[in-house]
Design a protein around this nucleic acid. Structure first.
Lengths: 247, 247
DNA sequence: CGGTAATTTGACTCTTCTCAAGAGGCGTGG
DNA sequence: CCACGCCTCTTGAGAAGAGTCAAATTACCG
Protein backbone atom coordinates (compact mmCIF):
# COMPACT_ATOMS: atom_id res chain seq x y z
CA UNK A 1 0.00 0.00 0.00
CA UNK A 2 0.85 3.59 -0.37
CA UNK A 3 3.96 4.77 1.32
CA UNK A 4 2.89 8.04 2.78
CA UNK A 5 5.53 8.79 5.29
CA UNK A 6 8.10 11.48 4.85
CA UNK A 7 5.41 14.02 4.98
CA UNK A 8 5.42 16.83 7.52
CA UNK A 9 2.31 18.16 9.11
CA UNK A 10 0.35 21.00 7.75
CA UNK A 11 -2.13 20.48 5.03
CA UNK A 12 -0.05 19.92 2.00
CA UNK A 13 -1.87 16.81 1.16
CA UNK A 14 -4.77 18.75 -0.18
CA UNK A 15 -2.66 19.79 -3.09
CA UNK A 16 -2.58 16.31 -4.49
CA UNK A 17 -6.26 15.91 -4.26
CA UNK A 18 -7.62 19.35 -4.55
CA UNK A 19 -9.76 18.70 -7.56
CA UNK A 20 -12.29 16.70 -5.60
CA UNK A 21 -15.37 17.44 -3.64
CA UNK A 22 -14.54 18.42 -0.06
CA UNK A 23 -16.10 16.72 2.92
CA UNK A 24 -18.50 19.64 3.27
CA UNK A 25 -19.99 19.00 -0.08
CA UNK A 26 -19.72 15.24 -0.10
CA UNK A 27 -23.03 13.46 -0.48
CA UNK A 28 -21.97 11.02 2.22
CA UNK A 29 -21.69 13.71 4.84
CA UNK A 30 -24.44 12.20 6.96
CA UNK A 31 -22.97 8.74 7.01
CA UNK A 32 -19.23 9.17 6.94
CA UNK A 33 -16.96 10.81 9.49
CA UNK A 34 -18.60 14.22 9.24
CA UNK A 35 -21.83 12.91 10.72
CA UNK A 36 -22.23 14.50 14.09
CA UNK A 37 -19.46 16.99 13.57
CA UNK A 38 -19.89 20.73 13.56
CA UNK A 39 -19.08 22.62 10.39
CA UNK A 40 -15.80 23.87 11.81
CA UNK A 41 -14.66 20.37 12.43
CA UNK A 42 -15.77 19.30 8.98
CA UNK A 43 -13.76 22.12 7.43
CA UNK A 44 -10.84 21.04 9.47
CA UNK A 45 -11.26 17.49 8.32
CA UNK A 46 -11.76 18.59 4.78
CA UNK A 47 -8.34 20.12 4.66
CA UNK A 48 -6.44 17.00 5.50
CA UNK A 49 -8.42 14.21 3.95
CA UNK A 50 -7.04 12.80 0.76
CA UNK A 51 -9.86 12.25 -1.58
CA UNK A 52 -11.04 10.02 -4.30
CA UNK A 53 -8.49 7.50 -5.15
CA UNK A 54 -9.98 5.04 -7.56
CA UNK A 55 -9.63 1.28 -7.65
CA UNK A 56 -10.75 -1.58 -9.85
CA UNK A 57 -12.15 -4.83 -8.56
CA UNK A 58 -9.53 -6.82 -6.77
CA UNK A 59 -7.26 -3.87 -6.06
CA UNK A 60 -6.21 -3.31 -2.47
CA UNK A 61 -6.72 -0.29 -0.30
CA UNK A 62 -4.35 -1.95 2.10
CA UNK A 63 -2.82 -5.35 2.58
CA UNK A 64 -2.64 -7.31 5.81
CA UNK A 65 0.82 -6.75 7.21
CA UNK A 66 1.22 -3.25 5.76
CA UNK A 67 2.34 -0.65 8.19
CA UNK A 68 -0.57 1.34 9.59
CA UNK A 69 -0.93 4.60 7.74
CA UNK A 70 -4.40 5.75 8.65
CA UNK A 71 -8.06 5.05 8.17
CA UNK A 72 -10.07 4.99 4.99
CA UNK A 73 -13.58 5.89 3.99
CA UNK A 74 -15.17 4.24 1.03
CA UNK A 75 -16.58 6.93 -1.21
CA UNK A 76 -18.19 4.83 -3.91
CA UNK A 77 -18.41 1.17 -4.77
CA UNK A 78 -17.95 -1.66 -2.31
CA UNK A 79 -15.05 -3.36 -0.62
CA UNK A 80 -14.41 -6.38 1.51
CA UNK A 81 -12.37 -6.60 4.67
CA UNK A 82 -10.70 -9.95 4.74
CA UNK A 83 -8.57 -11.69 7.28
CA UNK A 84 -6.27 -14.60 6.59
CA UNK A 85 -5.20 -16.78 9.45
CA UNK A 86 -1.67 -18.11 9.56
CA UNK A 87 -2.68 -21.17 7.62
CA UNK A 88 -3.96 -19.16 4.73
CA UNK A 89 -7.62 -19.64 5.38
CA UNK A 90 -9.38 -16.43 4.38
CA UNK A 91 -12.46 -14.96 6.06
CA UNK A 92 -14.42 -12.04 4.81
CA UNK A 93 -14.99 -10.09 7.98
CA UNK A 94 -17.06 -7.27 6.58
CA UNK A 95 -18.49 -5.77 3.43
CA UNK A 96 -18.11 -2.03 3.11
CA UNK A 97 -20.62 0.31 1.56
CA UNK A 98 -19.99 3.95 0.68
CA UNK A 99 -19.40 6.17 3.68
CA UNK A 100 -18.08 3.39 5.87
CA UNK A 101 -14.73 3.58 7.57
CA UNK A 102 -12.02 1.01 7.92
CA UNK A 103 -8.42 0.73 8.90
CA UNK A 104 -8.87 0.51 12.65
CA UNK A 105 -7.43 -2.96 12.47
CA UNK A 106 -4.03 -1.37 11.98
CA UNK A 107 -3.99 0.72 15.11
CA UNK A 108 -3.33 -1.74 17.87
CA UNK A 109 -0.25 -3.37 16.42
CA UNK A 110 0.84 -0.70 13.97
CA UNK A 111 0.17 -3.05 11.07
CA UNK A 112 -3.08 -3.86 9.36
CA UNK A 113 -4.42 -7.23 10.43
CA UNK A 114 -6.76 -7.51 7.49
CA UNK A 115 -6.81 -6.57 3.85
CA UNK A 116 -9.26 -4.14 2.36
CA UNK A 117 -10.08 -4.96 -1.24
CA UNK A 118 -12.33 -3.31 -3.79
CA UNK A 119 -15.18 -5.54 -4.94
CA UNK A 120 -15.92 -3.37 -7.96
CA UNK A 121 -14.74 -0.08 -9.35
CA UNK A 122 -14.61 2.03 -6.22
CA UNK A 123 -13.15 5.19 -4.78
CA UNK A 124 -12.08 6.10 -1.32
CA UNK A 125 -10.75 8.87 0.87
CA UNK A 126 -7.95 8.62 3.32
CA UNK A 127 -7.25 10.17 6.69
CA UNK A 128 -3.57 9.69 7.35
CA UNK A 129 -2.50 8.55 10.80
CA UNK A 130 -0.33 11.59 11.46
CA UNK A 131 -3.13 13.92 10.44
CA UNK A 132 -5.52 11.98 12.58
CA UNK A 133 -3.17 12.24 15.53
CA UNK A 134 -2.77 15.93 14.87
CA UNK A 135 -6.50 16.47 14.61
CA UNK A 136 -7.04 14.45 17.74
CA UNK A 137 -4.90 16.81 19.69
CA UNK A 138 -6.65 19.84 18.36
CA UNK A 139 -10.20 18.86 17.74
CA UNK A 140 -12.07 17.10 20.48
CA UNK A 141 -15.09 16.58 18.33
CA UNK A 142 -13.20 14.70 15.70
CA UNK A 143 -11.55 12.69 18.40
CA UNK A 144 -14.91 11.66 19.73
CA UNK A 145 -16.35 10.94 16.34
CA UNK A 146 -13.51 8.64 15.48
CA UNK A 147 -13.86 6.83 18.77
CA UNK A 148 -17.55 6.61 18.11
CA UNK A 149 -17.07 5.12 14.68
CA UNK A 150 -14.58 2.56 15.82
CA UNK A 151 -16.90 1.54 18.62
CA UNK A 152 -19.81 1.21 16.22
CA UNK A 153 -17.68 -1.16 14.26
CA UNK A 154 -16.88 -3.09 17.38
CA UNK A 155 -20.58 -3.41 18.22
CA UNK A 156 -21.12 -4.78 14.77
CA UNK A 157 -18.46 -7.38 15.32
CA UNK A 158 -20.06 -8.38 18.60
CA UNK A 159 -23.35 -8.95 16.85
CA UNK A 160 -21.60 -10.96 14.18
CA UNK A 161 -19.97 -13.17 16.75
CA UNK A 162 -23.36 -13.74 18.32
CA UNK A 163 -25.04 -14.59 15.03
CA UNK A 164 -22.25 -16.80 13.77
CA UNK A 165 -23.77 -19.58 15.83
CA UNK A 166 -27.21 -19.33 14.33
CA UNK A 167 -28.43 -21.60 11.53
CA UNK A 168 -27.45 -21.00 7.94
CA UNK A 169 -30.80 -19.68 6.75
CA UNK A 170 -30.92 -17.16 9.54
CA UNK A 171 -27.43 -15.93 8.85
CA UNK A 172 -28.34 -15.40 5.23
CA UNK A 173 -31.51 -13.59 6.16
CA UNK A 174 -29.63 -11.35 8.58
CA UNK A 175 -27.08 -10.60 5.92
CA UNK A 176 -29.76 -9.51 3.47
CA UNK A 177 -31.66 -7.50 6.06
CA UNK A 178 -28.48 -5.79 7.16
CA UNK A 179 -27.60 -4.84 3.63
CA UNK A 180 -31.11 -3.58 3.00
CA UNK A 181 -30.93 -1.36 6.08
CA UNK A 182 -27.60 0.05 5.05
CA UNK A 183 -28.98 0.70 1.59
CA UNK A 184 -31.81 2.63 3.17
CA UNK A 185 -29.42 4.77 5.19
CA UNK A 186 -27.82 5.69 1.90
CA UNK A 187 -31.06 6.64 0.29
CA UNK A 188 -31.15 3.58 -1.93
CA UNK A 189 -33.98 1.16 -2.33
CA UNK A 190 -33.97 -1.42 0.44
CA UNK A 191 -35.58 -3.92 -1.90
CA UNK A 192 -33.01 -3.97 -4.63
CA UNK A 193 -29.72 -5.33 -3.36
CA UNK A 194 -26.84 -5.31 -5.76
CA UNK A 195 -24.25 -7.80 -4.68
CA UNK A 196 -20.73 -7.17 -5.81
CA UNK A 197 -19.65 -10.35 -4.08
CA UNK A 198 -19.46 -13.69 -5.79
CA UNK A 199 -21.39 -16.59 -4.30
CA UNK A 200 -18.09 -17.87 -3.06
CA UNK A 201 -17.49 -14.64 -1.20
CA UNK A 202 -20.96 -14.48 0.29
CA UNK A 203 -20.57 -18.06 1.40
CA UNK A 204 -17.25 -17.31 3.00
CA UNK A 205 -18.65 -14.26 4.75
CA UNK A 206 -21.54 -16.26 6.15
CA UNK A 207 -19.54 -19.37 6.91
CA UNK A 208 -21.38 -21.47 4.32
CA UNK A 209 -20.34 -23.67 1.43
CA UNK A 210 -21.19 -22.15 -1.93
CA UNK A 211 -23.54 -25.01 -2.63
CA UNK A 212 -25.41 -24.47 0.59
CA UNK A 213 -25.74 -20.80 -0.15
CA UNK A 214 -27.00 -21.49 -3.62
CA UNK A 215 -29.61 -23.88 -2.30
CA UNK A 216 -30.72 -21.45 0.38
CA UNK A 217 -31.12 -18.65 -2.14
CA UNK A 218 -33.08 -21.04 -4.29
CA UNK A 219 -35.29 -21.89 -1.36
CA UNK A 220 -35.97 -18.24 -0.50
CA UNK A 221 -36.79 -17.64 -4.12
CA UNK A 222 -39.16 -20.60 -4.23
CA UNK A 223 -40.94 -19.10 -1.23
CA UNK A 224 -41.25 -15.80 -3.07
CA UNK A 225 -39.30 -14.08 -0.34
CA UNK A 226 -36.61 -12.87 -2.68
CA UNK A 227 -36.02 -12.75 -6.37
CA UNK A 228 -32.49 -13.62 -7.37
CA UNK A 229 -31.11 -12.60 -10.69
CA UNK A 230 -27.39 -13.11 -10.80
CA UNK A 231 -25.93 -10.46 -8.55
CA UNK A 232 -29.19 -8.64 -8.03
CA UNK A 233 -31.32 -9.69 -5.14
CA UNK A 234 -34.78 -8.29 -4.95
CA UNK A 235 -36.34 -8.56 -1.52
CA UNK A 236 -40.01 -9.20 -2.09
CA UNK A 237 -41.13 -10.06 1.39
CA UNK A 238 -39.11 -8.36 4.06
CA UNK A 239 -41.42 -9.53 6.82
CA UNK A 240 -40.93 -13.14 5.93
CA UNK A 241 -37.20 -12.54 5.91
CA UNK A 242 -37.39 -11.06 9.36
CA UNK A 243 -39.51 -13.92 10.56
CA UNK A 244 -36.72 -16.29 9.59
CA UNK A 245 -34.51 -14.54 12.12
CA UNK A 246 -37.36 -14.31 14.57
CA UNK A 247 -36.86 -17.95 15.42
CA UNK B 1 -23.20 9.39 24.01
CA UNK B 2 -22.54 9.85 27.66
CA UNK B 3 -23.56 13.08 29.19
CA UNK B 4 -20.33 14.16 30.70
CA UNK B 5 -20.96 17.77 31.07
CA UNK B 6 -22.58 19.19 34.16
CA UNK B 7 -19.73 18.11 36.32
CA UNK B 8 -16.78 20.28 37.08
CA UNK B 9 -13.50 18.61 36.64
CA UNK B 10 -11.13 17.74 39.38
CA UNK B 11 -10.73 14.42 41.00
CA UNK B 12 -13.51 14.11 43.46
CA UNK B 13 -14.12 10.53 42.67
CA UNK B 14 -10.93 9.43 44.34
CA UNK B 15 -12.31 10.18 47.73
CA UNK B 16 -14.58 7.19 47.70
CA UNK B 17 -11.88 4.74 46.86
CA UNK B 18 -8.75 6.11 48.31
CA UNK B 19 -7.93 3.17 50.50
CA UNK B 20 -6.81 0.90 47.70
CA UNK B 21 -3.60 0.25 45.89
CA UNK B 22 -3.02 2.89 43.26
CA UNK B 23 -2.34 2.07 39.62
CA UNK B 24 1.34 2.72 40.22
CA UNK B 25 1.57 -0.07 42.70
CA UNK B 26 -0.92 -2.43 41.10
CA UNK B 27 0.54 -5.77 40.14
CA UNK B 28 -1.32 -5.57 36.83
CA UNK B 29 0.48 -2.47 35.73
CA UNK B 30 2.08 -4.22 32.77
CA UNK B 31 -1.16 -5.62 31.44
CA UNK B 32 -3.83 -3.10 32.27
CA UNK B 33 -4.21 0.48 31.08
CA UNK B 34 -0.90 1.66 32.55
CA UNK B 35 1.06 -0.54 30.16
CA UNK B 36 2.89 1.74 27.78
CA UNK B 37 2.15 4.86 29.79
CA UNK B 38 4.77 7.08 31.37
CA UNK B 39 4.76 7.45 35.12
CA UNK B 40 3.17 10.89 34.91
CA UNK B 41 0.26 9.50 33.02
CA UNK B 42 -0.07 6.62 35.45
CA UNK B 43 -0.17 9.04 38.37
CA UNK B 44 -2.77 10.99 36.52
CA UNK B 45 -4.80 7.86 35.94
CA UNK B 46 -4.30 6.74 39.48
CA UNK B 47 -6.06 9.78 40.77
CA UNK B 48 -9.31 9.19 38.96
CA UNK B 49 -9.69 5.46 38.83
CA UNK B 50 -12.14 3.97 41.25
CA UNK B 51 -10.67 0.86 42.62
CA UNK B 52 -11.48 -2.54 43.88
CA UNK B 53 -15.14 -3.07 43.91
CA UNK B 54 -15.85 -6.66 44.75
CA UNK B 55 -18.41 -9.00 43.24
CA UNK B 56 -19.60 -12.54 43.74
CA UNK B 57 -20.26 -15.00 40.95
CA UNK B 58 -23.25 -13.96 38.92
CA UNK B 59 -23.13 -10.31 39.93
CA UNK B 60 -23.04 -7.73 37.18
CA UNK B 61 -20.46 -5.06 36.52
CA UNK B 62 -22.93 -3.67 34.03
CA UNK B 63 -26.11 -4.79 32.36
CA UNK B 64 -26.91 -4.59 28.68
CA UNK B 65 -29.05 -1.50 28.24
CA UNK B 66 -27.50 0.42 31.13
CA UNK B 67 -26.41 3.90 30.32
CA UNK B 68 -22.72 4.09 29.50
CA UNK B 69 -20.74 5.24 32.51
CA UNK B 70 -17.20 4.31 31.62
CA UNK B 71 -14.84 1.43 31.15
CA UNK B 72 -13.82 -1.22 33.62
CA UNK B 73 -10.70 -3.18 34.34
CA UNK B 74 -10.92 -6.53 35.99
CA UNK B 75 -8.55 -6.58 38.92
CA UNK B 76 -8.97 -10.14 40.12
CA UNK B 77 -11.15 -13.08 39.25
CA UNK B 78 -12.82 -13.62 35.90
CA UNK B 79 -15.84 -12.26 34.12
CA UNK B 80 -17.84 -12.95 31.00
CA UNK B 81 -19.05 -10.46 28.44
CA UNK B 82 -22.36 -11.67 27.16
CA UNK B 83 -24.68 -10.43 24.49
CA UNK B 84 -28.35 -11.28 24.19
CA UNK B 85 -30.05 -10.85 20.87
CA UNK B 86 -33.58 -9.57 20.75
CA UNK B 87 -34.94 -13.06 20.96
CA UNK B 88 -33.17 -13.74 24.19
CA UNK B 89 -30.49 -15.99 22.83
CA UNK B 90 -27.36 -15.34 24.84
CA UNK B 91 -23.81 -15.48 23.51
CA UNK B 92 -20.71 -15.28 25.60
CA UNK B 93 -18.58 -12.92 23.56
CA UNK B 94 -15.48 -12.90 25.71
CA UNK B 95 -13.98 -14.15 28.93
CA UNK B 96 -12.06 -11.57 30.91
CA UNK B 97 -8.94 -12.20 32.92
CA UNK B 98 -7.39 -9.78 35.40
CA UNK B 99 -6.03 -6.64 33.83
CA UNK B 100 -8.38 -6.73 30.88
CA UNK B 101 -10.63 -3.83 29.98
CA UNK B 102 -14.23 -3.78 28.97
CA UNK B 103 -17.05 -1.35 28.55
CA UNK B 104 -16.24 -0.12 25.07
CA UNK B 105 -19.49 -1.64 23.93
CA UNK B 106 -21.27 1.25 25.62
CA UNK B 107 -19.54 4.04 23.78
CA UNK B 108 -21.11 4.00 20.36
CA UNK B 109 -24.73 4.14 21.42
CA UNK B 110 -24.37 5.49 24.95
CA UNK B 111 -25.72 2.26 26.35
CA UNK B 112 -23.94 -0.98 26.97
CA UNK B 113 -24.74 -3.57 24.33
CA UNK B 114 -23.55 -6.46 26.44
CA UNK B 115 -23.52 -7.46 30.07
CA UNK B 116 -20.38 -7.98 32.06
CA UNK B 117 -20.79 -10.61 34.75
CA UNK B 118 -18.44 -11.99 37.37
CA UNK B 119 -17.74 -15.70 36.96
CA UNK B 120 -16.33 -16.03 40.45
CA UNK B 121 -15.50 -13.72 43.31
CA UNK B 122 -13.83 -10.87 41.50
CA UNK B 123 -12.84 -7.26 41.86
CA UNK B 124 -12.59 -4.47 39.36
CA UNK B 125 -11.62 -0.85 38.84
CA UNK B 126 -13.58 1.76 37.00
CA UNK B 127 -12.63 4.66 34.82
CA UNK B 128 -15.66 6.89 34.62
CA UNK B 129 -16.65 8.32 31.26
CA UNK B 130 -16.39 11.91 32.40
CA UNK B 131 -12.94 11.33 33.83
CA UNK B 132 -11.91 9.53 30.70
CA UNK B 133 -13.12 12.43 28.61
CA UNK B 134 -11.24 14.84 30.82
CA UNK B 135 -8.09 12.80 30.69
CA UNK B 136 -8.40 12.51 26.95
CA UNK B 137 -8.35 16.22 26.60
CA UNK B 138 -5.34 16.60 28.82
CA UNK B 139 -3.28 13.53 28.40
CA UNK B 140 -2.46 12.42 24.92
CA UNK B 141 -0.74 9.31 26.11
CA UNK B 142 -3.79 8.06 27.92
CA UNK B 143 -5.88 8.91 24.92
CA UNK B 144 -3.66 6.76 22.76
CA UNK B 145 -3.51 3.92 25.21
CA UNK B 146 -7.26 3.75 25.40
CA UNK B 147 -7.57 3.77 21.64
CA UNK B 148 -4.91 1.11 21.55
CA UNK B 149 -6.74 -1.09 24.01
CA UNK B 150 -10.04 -0.79 22.28
CA UNK B 151 -8.40 -1.65 18.98
CA UNK B 152 -6.71 -4.68 20.49
CA UNK B 153 -10.11 -5.82 21.53
CA UNK B 154 -11.40 -5.26 18.03
CA UNK B 155 -8.57 -7.32 16.57
CA UNK B 156 -9.50 -10.09 18.91
CA UNK B 157 -13.08 -9.96 17.71
CA UNK B 158 -11.90 -10.14 14.13
CA UNK B 159 -9.95 -13.28 14.89
CA UNK B 160 -12.94 -14.74 16.65
CA UNK B 161 -15.15 -14.10 13.65
CA UNK B 162 -12.58 -15.82 11.48
CA UNK B 163 -12.29 -18.83 13.75
CA UNK B 164 -16.01 -19.21 14.32
CA UNK B 165 -16.15 -21.08 11.03
CA UNK B 166 -13.52 -23.62 11.94
CA UNK B 167 -14.38 -27.10 13.18
CA UNK B 168 -15.35 -27.70 16.78
CA UNK B 169 -12.13 -29.34 17.88
CA UNK B 170 -10.07 -26.49 16.52
CA UNK B 171 -12.20 -23.88 18.24
CA UNK B 172 -11.75 -25.68 21.52
CA UNK B 173 -8.01 -25.97 21.00
CA UNK B 174 -7.75 -22.28 20.14
CA UNK B 175 -9.73 -21.43 23.24
CA UNK B 176 -7.38 -23.38 25.46
CA UNK B 177 -4.26 -22.05 23.76
CA UNK B 178 -5.55 -18.51 24.03
CA UNK B 179 -6.24 -18.91 27.72
CA UNK B 180 -2.83 -20.45 28.28
CA UNK B 181 -1.15 -17.51 26.58
CA UNK B 182 -3.07 -15.03 28.62
CA UNK B 183 -2.16 -16.96 31.76
CA UNK B 184 1.48 -16.68 30.77
CA UNK B 185 1.20 -12.93 30.30
CA UNK B 186 0.00 -12.79 33.87
CA UNK B 187 2.86 -14.82 35.21
CA UNK B 188 0.72 -17.89 35.79
CA UNK B 189 1.41 -21.37 34.62
CA UNK B 190 0.29 -21.89 31.05
CA UNK B 191 -0.32 -25.54 31.74
CA UNK B 192 -2.80 -25.24 34.56
CA UNK B 193 -5.99 -23.61 33.36
CA UNK B 194 -8.61 -22.93 35.93
CA UNK B 195 -11.97 -22.56 34.29
CA UNK B 196 -14.51 -20.52 36.11
CA UNK B 197 -17.01 -21.22 33.37
CA UNK B 198 -19.44 -24.10 33.41
CA UNK B 199 -19.41 -26.53 30.50
CA UNK B 200 -22.58 -24.84 29.38
CA UNK B 201 -20.81 -21.50 29.26
CA UNK B 202 -17.76 -22.82 27.47
CA UNK B 203 -20.02 -24.47 24.94
CA UNK B 204 -21.93 -21.29 24.41
CA UNK B 205 -18.74 -19.33 23.99
CA UNK B 206 -17.44 -21.77 21.40
CA UNK B 207 -20.74 -22.33 19.68
CA UNK B 208 -20.98 -25.95 20.73
CA UNK B 209 -23.58 -28.07 22.45
CA UNK B 210 -22.51 -29.07 25.95
CA UNK B 211 -22.49 -32.70 24.92
CA UNK B 212 -20.17 -32.01 22.02
CA UNK B 213 -17.84 -30.09 24.27
CA UNK B 214 -17.83 -32.86 26.82
CA UNK B 215 -17.01 -35.44 24.15
CA UNK B 216 -14.23 -33.29 22.73
CA UNK B 217 -12.66 -32.79 26.13
CA UNK B 218 -12.90 -36.51 26.65
CA UNK B 219 -11.20 -37.10 23.35
CA UNK B 220 -8.35 -34.69 24.10
CA UNK B 221 -7.93 -36.38 27.43
CA UNK B 222 -7.85 -39.84 25.85
CA UNK B 223 -5.08 -38.57 23.59
CA UNK B 224 -3.15 -37.37 26.62
CA UNK B 225 -3.22 -33.84 25.28
CA UNK B 226 -4.99 -32.46 28.31
CA UNK B 227 -5.98 -33.67 31.71
CA UNK B 228 -9.43 -32.58 32.76
CA UNK B 229 -10.44 -32.53 36.35
CA UNK B 230 -13.69 -30.73 36.83
CA UNK B 231 -12.87 -27.07 36.24
CA UNK B 232 -9.14 -27.58 36.09
CA UNK B 233 -7.62 -28.26 32.72
CA UNK B 234 -4.05 -29.31 32.63
CA UNK B 235 -2.43 -28.91 29.23
CA UNK B 236 -0.03 -31.79 28.88
CA UNK B 237 0.89 -31.48 25.24
CA UNK B 238 0.74 -27.97 23.95
CA UNK B 239 2.31 -28.90 20.64
CA UNK B 240 -0.40 -31.41 19.91
CA UNK B 241 -2.95 -28.79 20.77
CA UNK B 242 -1.38 -26.38 18.35
CA UNK B 243 -1.22 -29.02 15.68
CA UNK B 244 -4.99 -29.36 15.93
CA UNK B 245 -5.26 -25.75 14.83
CA UNK B 246 -2.49 -26.25 12.30
CA UNK B 247 -4.79 -27.75 9.79
C1' DC C 1 -18.66 -18.55 -30.99
C1' DG C 2 -15.55 -21.08 -28.02
C1' DG C 3 -13.38 -21.48 -23.63
C1' DT C 4 -13.23 -20.56 -18.94
C1' DA C 5 -15.18 -19.42 -14.69
C1' DA C 6 -19.24 -19.03 -11.81
C1' DT C 7 -23.37 -21.06 -10.33
C1' DT C 8 -26.71 -24.61 -9.67
C1' DT C 9 -28.28 -29.27 -8.82
C1' DG C 10 -27.94 -34.03 -7.16
C1' DA C 11 -26.27 -37.76 -4.23
C1' DC C 12 -23.95 -38.92 -0.43
C1' DT C 13 -21.11 -38.21 3.89
C1' DC C 14 -19.88 -36.34 8.11
C1' DT C 15 -19.95 -33.30 11.81
C1' DT C 16 -22.53 -31.67 15.26
C1' DC C 17 -27.06 -31.40 17.57
C1' DT C 18 -30.87 -33.31 20.11
C1' DC C 19 -33.03 -36.28 23.13
C1' DA C 20 -32.62 -39.44 26.80
C1' DA C 21 -30.55 -41.55 30.49
C1' DG C 22 -27.05 -42.24 33.86
C1' DA C 23 -23.09 -40.70 36.90
C1' DG C 24 -20.87 -37.60 39.75
C1' DG C 25 -20.37 -33.31 42.92
C1' DC C 26 -21.86 -30.24 46.12
C1' DG C 27 -24.56 -27.92 49.52
C1' DT C 28 -28.15 -28.22 52.94
C1' DG C 29 -30.27 -29.95 56.70
C1' DG C 30 -30.92 -33.49 59.77
C1' DC D 1 -21.00 -36.82 59.28
C1' DC D 2 -24.26 -38.69 56.36
C1' DA D 3 -28.33 -38.55 53.29
C1' DC D 4 -31.04 -36.28 50.17
C1' DG D 5 -31.84 -33.60 46.27
C1' DC D 6 -30.33 -30.70 42.79
C1' DC D 7 -27.49 -29.46 39.37
C1' DT D 8 -23.69 -30.29 36.33
C1' DC D 9 -21.43 -33.28 33.57
C1' DT D 10 -20.87 -37.46 30.76
C1' DT D 11 -22.28 -41.08 27.64
C1' DG D 12 -25.13 -43.27 24.10
C1' DA D 13 -28.11 -43.45 20.04
C1' DG D 14 -30.34 -41.42 16.40
C1' DA D 15 -31.47 -37.20 13.51
C1' DA D 16 -30.53 -33.17 11.04
C1' DG D 17 -27.97 -29.58 9.08
C1' DA D 18 -24.37 -28.46 6.31
C1' DG D 19 -20.24 -30.00 3.75
C1' DT D 20 -18.05 -32.57 -0.08
C1' DC D 21 -17.67 -34.47 -4.53
C1' DA D 22 -19.24 -34.72 -9.12
C1' DA D 23 -21.63 -33.19 -12.99
C1' DA D 24 -24.61 -30.19 -15.53
C1' DT D 25 -25.93 -25.53 -16.59
C1' DT D 26 -25.34 -20.85 -17.19
C1' DA D 27 -22.82 -16.52 -17.60
C1' DC D 28 -18.87 -13.90 -19.09
C1' DC D 29 -15.00 -12.43 -22.09
C1' DG D 30 -12.45 -12.06 -25.64
Amino acid sequence: MANMRGREHGFRSMKNWSSDVSCNACHLTDICLPSGMGSDAVNFLSQVVRRNRTLQRGEYIYHAGDRYTGVFALKSGTAKLSYSDRHGYESIIAVLLPGELQGFDGIASGRYQCSLVALETSSYCELAAHDMAYLRENDLVLQQVIQQKSCELMDRYVRRIATSQRPAEERLALFLIGLAQRYLERGLSAEEINLSLTRQEIGNHLGLAVETLSRLLGKLEALNIVNVERKKIHIMNMEALQKICGK
